[in-house]
Amino acid sequence: MKWLYCPHSQAALHENTFMSTATESKVRIQREDFVVTDEIEMMKRVSQNIGGIVTFLGTGRELSKGENISKLDFEHYPQMAEKKLEELRVEAIERFKIIDMSIVHRIGEIDIGENIVLIVACGEHRAEAFKACEWAIAELKRTTPIWKRETTSNGDVWVSATP
């Protein structure tokens, strides 16, 4: 049995907790898919001063470095990954003066075309939300202990870095 660290509720959530719809937690790592519009609606409720929302959605791509990928598998360091995402979220809010941000990242097996990661940046205006969202996905890939294994026709390979 595995438990997930949940910084916002200060509670441990069971990994298998059904969370395919948005919850109040603004940083989540989960096996289940998420609904993009639910995640955006959750963030719209944060403040009536939100005037611009920028989202980044990462999805499973079929071709990587010339190889056809049939499946992706994401592994994370429980608790540390959630901690890093929360630190990232807080820094994005402070650095870019946005109103709020949410981050959802899936783990486990993910098929081609499925959702992997979603970042929702909410600002009073669009400029800071665009900047915060772009910074956040780059920072996520640099600092968050999540690893991807690709299944190709030549076997399985752990990806050491992504562009």
Partner: peptide
Amino acid sequence: VALLPPFSGGLA
């Protein structure tokens, strides 16, 4: 302690 290979989260 944890040994961490290069991260590769995010999109594919």
